[in-house]
Amino acid sequence: MWGIIINRFKQGFRTTLSYPKEVPSFPQRFRGKPVLNNTADTPCPINKSKDPLGAVASGKKLTLDMGKCLFNEDLKAICPKGILTYSQDHRLAVSKKKDLILQGEEVKLARALNEKTRKIFGRSLKLREVCAGSCSGCDAEIQAMGNIVFDLSRFGIQFVASPRHADGLMITGPVTKNMELALKKTYEAVPHPKIVIAVGACAINGGPFQGGRDVHDGVDGLIPVDLYIPGCPPHPLTILDGLLRLLGKLENKENNFR
C-alpha cells in the first residue's frame, strides 16, 4: 500500500496530453502530411521505381494519393528536385476517398456527421475494432489511444467487446480473403445507424499488399466507409483528430475544440 503511494509520487504528474487545446510538437523527422511543391514551370522527371505503390500520379500537375502512400522516407526520392516533402502536420483524416488525393498543401479534412447522427453519437461513441489482415501496427496505435497519454475515453469514445454493443466499426488491414466473411458478419451485427472507419493505408487501398492474390484492396467495395485515416500506421493523434472531426468536436482547419 505505502509502496504504491510512494511510487505514485515518484512517477509524478506527467500524464495526459492537453490535446486538443495544445498540439504537442512532433520531432523534425516525423512524416506527417505530404507536401507537393507544385510549381507549374518546373516539370519534374518522376522516378517511378521509387513509388512501387503508385501513390504519385503525374498529369498536368503532380498529385499524391495519401491512401496509397506509406509515408516512407524513400518516396521522397521520386524526384531529385525535392518536389515531395513531409510536413509535421498530423491531421490527415478525410470523409471521401477522393479527398485523399493531394494537389498542393490543402487537405479537405473530414466533415462532421450530419446533425441527427451527431446527436446520437456526439457524446458517446462506442466502436468495435476489427483487424482484417493488418500487420497489427495500426491496431497498436489504436490501442495506444487508450493509454494515459492520449486517454481516449475523456472524449466519450470507447472500444467495446461486441459489435452488438457498438455504434460503428474501426477496421484495419487490407481485408484478407480469410477475414472477409468475419468482417461482413461483424458489420451486420452492428445496429443501425452505424459508421465505418478505415484506419491505415492497408484498409484504404491495400497498402503494400495491394493487388495481392490473398487480399482485397481495402474495405471499400465490401462495406461503406465514412472516415478514412491514412498513415502507416497513423499516429494516435491522427486517428484521434479524425474521430473528433467526425463528431464535430474540432472545427475545420483549426484545432479549436468545441
Binding site: P52, L53, D74, C131, C135, S136, T176, N178, F209, D214
Partner: peptide, 27 residues
C-alpha cells in the same frame, strides 16, 4: 485469418516494394 501471401509476393515485386512488405510482416 491474417494470411496476406507475403512470401509469394516477395518473389514478384520490386526491391523498392519488397522492403515495404518486409516492414509489414508484423507491425
Amino acid at each position: 485469418y491474417q494470411h496476406r501471401g507475403i512470401e509469394k509476393m516477395m518473389e514478384n515485386v520490386s526491391m523498392e516494394r519488397s522492403v515495404l512488405l518486409a516492414e509489414s510482416i508484423a507491425g
